[in-house]
């Protein structure tokens, strides 16, 4: 399996786990978002995981809310 395929598989596993955790916690907004948008979220996650873990957030205001 290529690195990117392995990463994609890991991300899908993580999304499965997150959906289960969100559901268990009663966090329906997040659970529904991940469930309904799984393919898009997986793409976002794969892209994010390929980047260095630096913080480049637009403003302290946004940062403090996220």
């Amino acid at each position: 399996m290529t690195d990117i395929a392995a990463l994609r598989a890991d991300v899908h596993k993580e999304i499965d786990r997150l959906i289960a955790e969100f559901k268990a916690g009663g966090f329906d907004n997040a659970a529904r978002y991940l469930t309904d948008n799984r393919a898009a979220v997986a793409e976002i996650a794969v892209k994010a995981r390929q980047e260095p873990r630096t913080r480049e957030l637009p403003s302290p205001f946004v940062y403090s809310m996220q």
Partner: peptide, 26 residues
């Protein structure tokens, strides 16, 4: 929002940015 997104461009930009940030920073 809740129409299933088939690509990242269907996710609202704010949510896409936050989702990206949350995955990137674990």
């Amino acid at each position: 929002l809740w129409k299933a997104a088939t690509s990242t461009k269907d996710v609202p930009p704010y949510l896409e940015a936050v989702t990206h940030s949350w995955f990137k920073l674990d």
